[in-house]
């Protein structure tokens, strides 16, 4: 067979090869995202995502969506721009969450025995679905950034509240009030993470009384819009094909 001949001899074979390549590409994409996005999120969101006693209504709500919209924006751009596939955000989030669950279960619990109810990851799926749907329906990155990015930031806290609410029930302990999450942080000793490192409930949003989470979510949503724009350009740049003039080689 010469180089100019096709590797397949029938349409059925072509379909079969195409599907095989689909799975190979998807598997590679999934594992690359799992690794890359996971490292990115651990480095930027880190402790806010690791520990229940960091999941507060101010900084976690603010930081987590901002630092996590990055890869979904880039992968969405690539998959939509090149393939019109609207699952870029969901594939990222699923890869991240599967990676995180492997890490939390095997490392945090399996090796160091932190209870899973103390070190579970954040839920990012609702925002990812909305992001993908907005892109698919609008076909516009501007609208996706504005509407999808806003949705990404706004639904983060409600999407996680059913998971963390039980840990925010108050308890009296040795004459002081704690939430159960605070007590987890106090009971399950993290030798390398002293209490003062914990960045929770810091800030100046005091004039909103106890309703701080929506304000934080709105702020996070606005910044998520900007970050989406930035990272979607990375995605477009990454999926660009350049041909070099033969004379210039």
């Amino acid at each position: 067979m010469s180089a100019s001949q096709s590797a397949v001899r029938s349409r059925a074979e072509a379909v079969q090869v195409s599907r095989t390549l689909d799975w190979m590409i998807l598997f590679t994409l999934f594992t690359v995202i799992l690794g890359g996005y996971h490292i990115h999120y651990m480095l930027t969101g880190g402790d806010w995502d690791f520990w229940a006693d960091w999941k507060d209504r101010r900084l976690w709500v603010t930081v987590a969506p901002i630092v996590s919209i990055t890869f979904p924006a880039a992968v969405q751009a690539c998959l939509w721009y090149r393939y019109r596939l609207p699952f870029g955000a969901v594939v990222c989030v699923l890869a991240l969450m599967i990676g995180e669950w492997i890490n939390r279960y095997l490392n945090f619990w399996g090796w160091t025995y932190f209870p899973v109810n103390f070190c579970f990851p954040s839920n990012l799926v609702p925002g990812a679905i909305l992001l993908d749907v907005v892109l698919m329906l609008s076909g516009s990155f501007v609208l996706t950034a504005v509407l999808g990015g806003m949705a990404w930031g706004l639904v983060f806290y409600p999407g996680n509240w059913p998971i963390i609410a039980p840990l925010h029930v108050p308890v009296e302990y040795n004459g002081m009030m704690f939430t159960l999450a605070d007590l987890q942080g106090y009971h399950y000793v993290r030798t390398g993470t002293p209490e003062y490192i914990r960045m929770v409930e810091k800030g100046t949003l005091r004039s909103f009384g106890k309703d701080v989470a929506p304000v934080s979510a709105f702020f996070s949503a606005f910044v998520s819009v900007i970050i989406y724009f930035l990272w979607h350009f990375f995605g477009r740049w990454f999926s660009k094909t350049d041909f070099i003039d033969g004379e210039g080689v």
Binding site: P158, G159, P162, A165, M177, T179, A181, D182, Y196
Partner: peptide, 26 residues
């Protein structure tokens, strides 16, 4: 997604009507 978010939020607030923010401070 939006429906499930609203439902789960309402159901959670009904099940845990009393919650407090994380406690912190020097």
């Amino acid at each position: 997604t939006l429906g499930l978010l609203m439902f789960s939020l309402g159901a959670t607030n009904e099940e845990y009507p009393i919650t407090t923010p994380l406690q912190a401070g020097l």
